[in-house]
Design a binder for these strands. Structure first.
Lengths: 203, 203
DNA sequence: GTTTGATGTTGACGGGATACACATGAGCCT
DNA sequence: AGGCTCATGTGTATCCCGTCAACATCAAAC
């Protein structure tokens, strides 16, 4: 019934050695190229040169694998936000850079951005690290420390700023029937209005 | 090879009579109940009491059917926005009501909201009618006519207001890792900040 | 009353997710 | 050394889904 000798074909070893990481890597590559469309178990397994069932030794289900890739995408976004922050000192410039990078990510990496916020059956096992939410929250905390935002309003300000960049990125990224005009000036205008809403609300 | 006499089983007639509309109706019901997860050709066909292939007489592909249901969901959103506007006279109250209803839709109908903005291979054949975008645009146009917004800024203001409500609804609806706290006061605070950003920008 | 075209049905094929049984091989125990 | 064990892969089978080609039904046009 079963063949006595397995043909290893073009594989060097029977065991892959680092399948989990390899799956996440090709998953990110596919996500970058085509969003959530090619993140199936069979397809990713084929990319890595492994049988579909091998995937289940590392992820309980295809949905879990997708959730893990989604988390990787969110962490990539967060990493880029951190990078954009690195060279800014002024709190306003930090705040603006954070939002600008968030939007830029949505525009330049629509595939990753879509996957980052895909609605998934499975939840990630660990917290995002780095976390885009935490980064934005810290930026607003800085504004509190500078006296530009009342500590009592920290949460509502964070909601506000977050909603703006996330909403714009969502609408501008991918194939949306409500896609807005996109230009650097449109984005800067949006960020300026955001700054106004954040700092001038309770005068 | 093929049976000479078809058993009609529990069907009254061989032809359904209104299959296209029926598919959209059950599609909306399924979307309301579980988002995009049960919008497959086979499933919807079964719901309507018809063979999967019958669907293709009305929609070129399953993706097209999904796009049609997505459009229905967007139009439902737009209809609710219009309803919320009906009893408001003041331009500010109209503006606020529009945004509030958008967010309320995201919170109360997460399934429909997700489907409304699903990333779909196929595009809708006709324009949305009514269109949520047009309704929001009109609300800002009113602000122009009242002198509260400069006509030259109409587009950027629309972008701004739209991004806020869409972003918040997206983050607050469904299973998002960045889901914010949700309460009426949080929403009113957001709308007030939006109003400020819309009207006070160019003073 | 026949023809015809719109609308449904069957059956088949290809592909995806995943359950179960089996294979491989590196490291540990004796 | 020689063998046991367990994590990790493979093979096969099953079920479901989307879709094609061929055939069936029926109402309306002629």
């Amino acid at each position: 019934m079963y063949p006595v000798n397995i043909k290893l074909m073009n594989k060097k070893t029977y065991h892959h050695g680092n399948l989990e990481e390899a799956l996440l890597t090709v998953g990110m590559k596919e996500a970058k190229a085509s969003g959530f469309r090619n993140l199936g178990v069979t397809h990713l397994a084929k990319m890595v040169g492994v049988t579909p069932m091998a995937v289940y030794r590392h992820f309980p289900s295809g949905e879990n694998l997708k959730a893990a890739i989604s988390q990787q995408a969110r962490e990539e976004l967060a990493r880029r936000m951190l990078e954009a922050l690195e060279n800014e000192e002024d709190v306003k410039r930090k705040f603006m850079a954070t939002g600008r990078e968030y939007i830029r990510f949505g525009l330049e990496e629509p595939g990753l951005f879509a996957v980052a916020f895909i609605d998934c059956d499975a939840s990630p096992q660990r917290e995002d690290n780095p976390s885009a939410r935490a980064i934005l929250h810290d930026a607003i905390l800085d504004l509190c420390n500078e006296g530009l935002v009342k500590p009592a309003e920290l949460e509502s300000v964070a909601n506000f700023a977050w909603s703006i960049v996330h909403g714009f990125a969502m609408l501008a990224s991918g194939n949306n029937p409500f896609r807005p005009e996109i230009s650097p000036s449109v984005i800067e205008n949006l960020l300026e209005r955001s700054w106004l809403g954040v700092t001038q609300f309770s005068k």
